[in-house]
C-alpha cells in the first residue's frame, strides 16, 4: 500500500512540475512567435519565383530536445492500450517542433524570408525526442552583416 502511495505521489509531482513547465514553455513560444510574425518561412523551393535578386543566402537551423515527464509516459502507456488520440504526446511534439522552428527563425533575423524549410523529428532515447528545423534564409537587400551574426540581439529600427 505504501509502495502504491509512493508511486502515485511521485507521478503526481511529475504531473505538477511537467504541466507547469509545459504551460510556461507554451507561453514563451507564443510570445516569441508573435515577435517573429513579420518574417515568413515557407516550405516552397520557389521554382517559379525569381530569387536571382537575392544578395545573400544563409543556411539556418534550430533544434530542440525535449523529454516527457513520467506522468505523461504513464498516461501515454495507459491510453495507448485503447488507441486513439494521445493528447499527452501531441503537446510534447508540438512544443519541440515549434521551439526548433523559432530557433531557426531567430537565426535568420533580418532576412526577408526563410525558404525551403525542412522539419525533422527523431527519437533519441526512451522518452526524449529531438526536432530539427532547417532552411535557407534569403536576404534580398544587402545590409550590415554584423547585425546578422548576433542572432540574439534585436535589430535596431531603421531611421529614414
Amino acid at each position: 500500500m505504501i509502495d502504491l502511495i509512493i508511486i502515485f505521489g511521485f507521478l503526481f509531482i511529475a504531473y505538477i512540475t511537467g504541466s507547469i513547465a509545459e504551460k510556461n514553455h507554451f507561453k514563451r513560444i507564443r510570445a516569441r512567435e508573435a515577435a517573429l510574425i513579420n518574417q515568413p518561412y515557407v516550405v516552397d523551393q520557389f521554382k517559379t519565383m525569381d530569387l536571382s535578386k537575392a544578395q545573400r543566402t544563409e543556411f539556418v537551423h534550430g533544434s530542440c530536445v525535449i523529454a516527457a515527464d513520467r506522468f505523461k509516459m504513464f498516461l501515454g502507456g495507459v491510453l495507448s492500450i485503447f488507441g486513439g488520440r494521445i493528447s499527452a504526446f501531441e503537446s510534447l511534439t508540438d512544443r519541440a517542433r515549434r521551439e526548433a522552428i523559432i530557433r531557426m527563425r531567430e537565426q535568420a533575423i533580418g532576412a526577408d524570408m526563410v525558404v525551403c524549410t525542412r522539419i525533422q523529428f527523431s527519437k533519441i532515447g526512451k522518452t526524449q525526442v529531438e526536432s530539427i528545423a532547417y532552411g535557407t534564409a534569403i536576404y534580398l537587400n544587402s545590409f550590415d552583416e554584423s547585425v546578422v551574426t548576433n542572432s540574439n540581439e534585436q535589430i535596431p529600427a531603421y531611421t529614414f
Partner: peptide
C-alpha cells in the same frame, strides 16, 4: 526525464 522539460545539454 522525471519532471519533463527541455534537455539543454542534449
Amino acid at each position: 526525464n522525471i519532471f519533463g522539460g527541455e534537455l539543454k545539454g542534449y
